[in-house]
Design a protein around this nucleic acid. Structure first.
Lengths: 199, 199
DNA sequence: CCATAAGCGGACCACTCGGTCCGCTTCTAG
DNA sequence: CTAGAAGCGGACCGAGTGGTCCGCTTATGG
C-alpha cells in the first residue's frame, strides 16, 4: 500500500549498508557520530542517508527498533524455560551481551516519539514483567523486586564495566553476578524506597 | 609565588560565579552545555570564561577536582567510624547523594590529562580501597569483592535511577540497597569474572 | 586622587553539524 | 533496447560551537 513499485534493489542494499554502518559508527563514537561519517562508512553520499531516513533521529530509531525486538524475542523464548530464576538471569545475560557487542545505550530520548519504537519498547516491558513475575513466584528473586526494577537494573553491568578502559570483555558478567545476588531473596534487607512505575 | 599581586577582588568573585554557574549548567544540560550559556548564567562575557579557564576542559577539570576532593574527605572521615560495614555503605550513600544533587558523570576523559585531577582521583581510590578492605576484614562484604569493584559500582544507582523521567529523588536509594545486598556475604554466589585493576 | 595594569565583554573567526537541493546516473518495466 | 522514474551524491546553507582579540572599564597601590 505504501508503494506501487516495491523498491529498487540497489536502494535496499544501500539501506541495509547504512543501518549496519550506522550501528558500528554509533557504537564506536557514541551519539556524536556524524551523519557524514556514517555515509562514508557505508560508501554512499550524505544525501542518500537523508533519502532513506529523513532525520538522524529516524535512523537511530530504526536501529533501536531492531535491537528492542531482538530482546523481546529472546525474552519470549525464555518464558518457556523450566526454571524461572534461570530464565530471568539468562534474559539479563542476553541483554547485557547484546549491549557489550555494541553499546547503543542512547536508546533514550531518541526514538521516544516514534510510535513504532514506543510500541516495541512496551512489548519488551511486558515480557520482562512476565519473566520477573514468574521468578518472584518461584522464589528465585526477592518479593519486593518488580519488573520495572529489572528493566532499569539490567543496563547497569555494562555501564559499570564500561568505565574500565581496557577491561576484559567479560567484566560485565562479574557485575551482573553481584547484581543478581542482590536480587535474590537470601539475606535481602528491606529497601528504603518504593519501586518506580514506568510508562 | 604564582603572583606578585594577589588577584583583583572582582576577578575572584567572577571565578567563583563561573564555577557555580558551570556546575549548574552542566548538571542540567549535560556535557553539551555551551560556554556561551555558562557565561550568560554567570552574568559575564564569554571572554571572561576563557580568561579564567583557558579551555572548556580546564573548567570541567576544576569542577571535577572539587567534587572528588569532597568525596575523599567524606571517606577519610568515615574511616574513623566504628562499624566498617556501616562506614562503607555511608560512603556509597554520600557519593550517590552528591551525584543526585548534580549529575556530573562526565568526570571521565575530561580532566584525565590534568595532573591535579588524576592525583585527586588516586587519593580517592586509596580511601575507597581502605574502606572496602576494612569492611571485608569485618565480614561486612563478601570476600571476593575489591575496592575497584566498589569504585565502579558506586556510580550505578544514580545511573539506573536516572532512566526514570519523573522519579522520586530517593529512587537511587532503592538501587543502592539492592546493590549493597549483592555485596554482602550472605547467599553470595561465585563470580564468573575476576575483578579489574584500575590505574 | 591618579596612573596603570588587571580585568572585562562581545565582535569575530574557523570549523562542524544536520539537513536541503538539484543535476546526473542507474535500475527496471514493457 | 529504451524511456522514465527511482535513486544518488556532493555542493551548499544556516545555526551553533570552542576559542581569539583588542579597545574599553575598573579596581587598587602609592
Amino acid at each position: 500500500m505504501t508503494s506501487s513499485r516495491p523498491q529498487r534493489a540497489d536502494a535496499a542494499r544501500n539501506r541495509a549498508a547504512l543501518l549496519a554502518a550506522a550501528a558500528d559508527e554509533f557504537a564506536e563514537r557514541g551519539m556524536d557520530a556524524s551523519v557524514a561519517d556514517i555515509a562514508r562508512r557505508a560508501g554512499v553520499g550524505k544525501g542518500t542517508v537523508f533519502r532513506h531516513f529523513p532525520t538522524k533521529d529516524d535512523l537511530i530509531a530504526a536501529i533501536v527498533l531492531d535491537r528492542v525486538d531482538e530482546l523481546t524475542a529472546a525474552g519470549d523464548r525464555l518464558l518457556g524455560e523450566a526454571d524461572p530464576g534461570v530464565a530471568l538471569l539468562a534474559f539479563m545475560t542476553a541483554a547485557a551481551h547484546q549491549r557489550q557487542q555494541r553499546d547503543l545505550s542512547f536508546l533514550h530520548g531518541a526514538g521516544d516519539v516514534d510510535p513504532a519504537v514506543t510500541g516495541a519498547r512496551e512489548r519488551m516491558y511486558r515480557v520482562i514483567h512476565d519473566l520477573v513475575d514468574r521468578a518472584r513466584g518461584a522464589g528465585a528473586v526477592r518479593p519486593d523486586v518488580t519488573g520495572a526494577d529489572v528493566i532499569l537494573l539490567m543496563c547497569a553491568p555494562n555501564y559499570v564495566a564500561g568505565y574500565v578502559p581496557d577491561a576484559s570483555p567479560d567484566l560485565w558478567r562479574r557485575y551482573l553476578g553481584i547484581l543478581f545476588d542482590g536480587l535474590r531473596p537470601q539475606g535481602a534487607h528491606p529497601l528504603p524506597a518504593p519501586p518506580p512505575t514506568l510508562a
